[in-house]
């Protein structure tokens, strides 16, 4: 590589070359500025490919591919300007992708966080149930590691769906199946939390507080995310979803 001291001054470059460079640079920036901005609209989410194909595509590094796919998947949103994220997504496709990502990286927790706290929070009871069922199914594959997501699903079923039997079923599943030494005792008492007459805010606060105290949540981004969730609940306005939820429930 040529060192800076070996170079001739800029004045040695013909003016035509300088103009070519500057002109092309302006054209390139203009071209890209005029090009439509990339968007990932909900309707464009493709179906998930087979797990085997993804394994091949990962070139022997499935965990890295799983992490990138998760970030890519969550970029799929409604058309810009619509304030309720993820509502228009085809949830069969979403669960397909989440399932493949978990297959690539079974120890990863991100897909379950997304299923229970993002995609499961849309104001559409049918889609909420779909996501909670997904979390339940995945919990059964690895109960000792995935119980926190089912615990959240139990709270969601109780307070958002008002579906007590479903909520109790999830709590019971944690009690019966999450029996590893690393699962705290209070987790096996989820049934009591579900049956308490407390509201969603108290239940969510109790669950998150216990998870943090237990050292299950340490990532600062996740803590921030949960803090914002609690603040929304506290403010009582908890996203525009609630209003739409009522509408959605009425419609259904």
């Amino acid at each position: 590589m040529t060192g800076a001291s070996d170079l001739r001054p800029v004045s040695a470059v013909p003016a035509a070359v300088v103009w070519l460079l500057l002109g092309a640079l302006v054209l390139q920036i203009g071209w890209r500025a005029l090009a439509p901005r990339p968007t990932a609209e909900a309707r464009n989410l493709p179906a998930a490919p087979s797990a085997m194909l993804l394994q091949i595509a990962s070139l022997g590094d499935p965990v890295a591919l799983a992490k990138v796919l998760m970030l890519w998947l969550q970029a799929y949103d409604n058309p810009p300007g619509v304030s309720i994220p993820f509502l228009e997504l085809d949830y069969r496709r979403v669960t397909g992708w989440l399932d493949r990502i978990l297959t690539l990286d079974p120890a990863g927790q991100y897909p379950l966080l997304a299923a229970s706290r993002l995609y499961g929070a849309v104001p559409d009871p049918r889609k909420q149930r779909q996501m909670l069922d997904f979390v339940h199914g995945k919990f059964l594959e690895d109960p000792d590691r995935r119980w926190p997501w089912l615990a959240h699903a139990a709270v969601m079923a109780r307070h958002r769906l008002k579906d007590l039997p479903r909520s109790l079923r999830y709590a019971q599943a944690i009690t019966e199946r999450a029996t590893g030494a690393q699962v705290p005792g209070w987790a096996r008492q989820m049934r009591a939390l579900v049956l308490e007459q407390a509201g969603e805010l108290e239940a969510a606060r109790a669950l998150i507080g216990a998870l943090v105290a237990n050292g299950r949540i340490t990532d600062s981004h996740e803590l921030n995310f949960l803090r914002r969730e609690l603040e929304r609940l506290e403010a009582g306005s908890e996203r525009p979803r609630d209003d739409a939820a009522a509408t959605g429930e009425n419609e259904s």
Binding site: T2, D6, L7, R8, P9, V10, A12, V13, P14, V17, V18, L20, L21, L22, G23, A24, L25, L27, Q28, W31
Partner: peptide, 23 residues
């Protein structure tokens, strides 16, 4: 084709700028 033309011109401009500054 439009993007290719513009980008090849840009890369050519940078390469020529570098070449003309060599001793």
């Amino acid at each position: 084709a439009g993007q290719t033309l513009i980008y090849v011109l840009l890369l050519a401009g940078i390469a020529l700028f570098d070449l003309y500054r060599r001793d």
